[in-house]
Design a protein around this nucleic acid. Structure first.
Lengths: 246, 246
DNA sequence: CCATGATTTTGACGAAGCGTCAAAATCTTG
DNA sequence: CAAGATTTTGACGCTTCGTCAAAATCATGG
């Protein structure tokens, strides 16, 4: 058995895994989590159930794989956001824009992530794949923490370095909560919240103002211009795609 | 058929429903969401499956009922918190303490709520029971909004009344996110977040500082004293229970 | 090109849960 | 207490899961 054989097999395997995930994604989108079954995946991919099980030990793992795929895109967007040329707080604003853009591009991802996070579902997945997802989160968190540290170094923010994770966690929990509330079609408007994402945009800035991170949102700084610049210089492609889909 | 007969039947029915929910709660605690089955509930209650189905059309509704029960306790705690005698921002801090106390008293509730919020699960529940849950949320939200309005009226906070829901949503999303992240046993500590609830306590105050709500957290005010007073004057019973369980 | 052994694919199968419903049990009332 | 109304029961049909022996396909040396 030559190297080329092994490679060819490996490639075929990967191609098939891609196909499985593509079809699973489509089924998930069309019929929801409960409508996603291993039999249906098999049928859609024209493979037998046994073959699907060669790739994924259960459907939770399939969903986990989908979540992981998309999550790594988010990490990449965060990393790209942090490269924005501007003051530290503008770079953090870029990360915020990345996060919002992400949920708007992949609204169904949040729904899947919610499922995968539920304890009973997560218990059926392998630690290995969980690790991958944790790594994505870690990347996002590290990008954010890096920007905070840069802010301290640049003198834009006065904060004990010990408290950097705390600040990052504040942003994360606020985003996580708002996105999950926004995506679960709960009647938020009846509670007076017409546009949760808009509220989030403000609250995130208010939080950073609370930390005294310069330049303040409640100040003379032209944040509209910054947001426009971020959209143009970092996420032009994504915004175009979003506009195209709508 | 006299009135007493009807009443007796009604009472028996309610007693049975309580029993079902109690047993379901126990099973949920012990075996998780996927381990909760209608057959097991039937077995545990010594009724047949058909009888269980007389009360709940599926297990999603059972969980929904459990979530609703506990949620209404949270609403009550919020309402009690708002009665705290103090300045507006202290009263909001009392609500914060209520929220934290609640997750610590019922950590499993958050897990169930997470499941019930997932779209695929929620779709199987009746609109009627969803309404009940929404009503609980509405109560919580209204308590919070009331305190914010009081703050504006008292001059502790300068804010366009239009933006009251926005502020409330900021707190809600931050809490919701942090609680869900804390309760899903994800390795947050590896991301530098050792004590998510402690971080939340700070971040919630930082957010309100960002809004300029007096008296500020980052000021001379003695917040430790306020927290102790809240714990003692409003939630003495709950804290005792928490200490007893630990 | 074929034989042979390794590898992969298949789908039938047992187990488990769901929700239903006709029959059995129980209760009500004249 | 008899007859009719109501409630309870659990067996049944259906769906999904995950497995595994048999069939199909592939790799390799002659």
């Amino acid at each position: 058995m030559g190297m080329s054989t092994s490679t060819r097999k490996q490639q075929a395997r990967e191609a098939r895994e891609d196909l499985i995930l593509r079809e699973a994604q489509a089924i998930l989108l069309e019929r929801g989590y409960l409508g996603l079954t291993m039999d249906r995946i098999a049928q859609a991919t024209d493979y037998s159930k046994g073959t699907i099980y060669q790739h994924f030990p259960n459907k939770e793992e399939v969903v986990m794989a989908l979540v992981t795929q998309t999550s790594s895109r988010r990490s990449a967007m965060f990393e790209r956001a942090a490269t924005f040329r501007g003051r530290s707080r503008e770079r953090m604003a870029a990360i915020g824009q990345a996060a919002e853009l992400f949920v708007r591009l992949y609204p169904d991802h949040m729904r899947s992530e919610q499922i995968v996070r539920a304890a009973s579902v997560r218990d059926k997945t392998t630690p290995e794949r969980r690790r991958v997802l944790e790594a994505c989160e870690s990347r996002c968190m590290n990008v954010a923490k890096g920007v905070v540290r840069d802010a301290i170094a640049a003198g834009d923010l006065e904060l004990d370095p010990e408290r950097v994770p705390e600040l990052a966690f504040g942003l994360w929990s606020m985003h996580f909560g708002a996105f999950n509330l926004a995506v679960a079609e709960w009647p938020l408007d009846e509670l007076g919240v017409d546009d949760p994402l808009a509220s989030l945009r403000v609250n995130q800035h208010v939080l950073l103002d609370g930390y005294g991170w310069q330049p303040l949102f409640a100040g003379a700084f032209d944040w509209d211009a910054t947001n426009a610049r971020i959209a143009h210089e970092v996420f032009a492609g994504e915004w175009a795609r979003l506009a195209g889909e709508a």
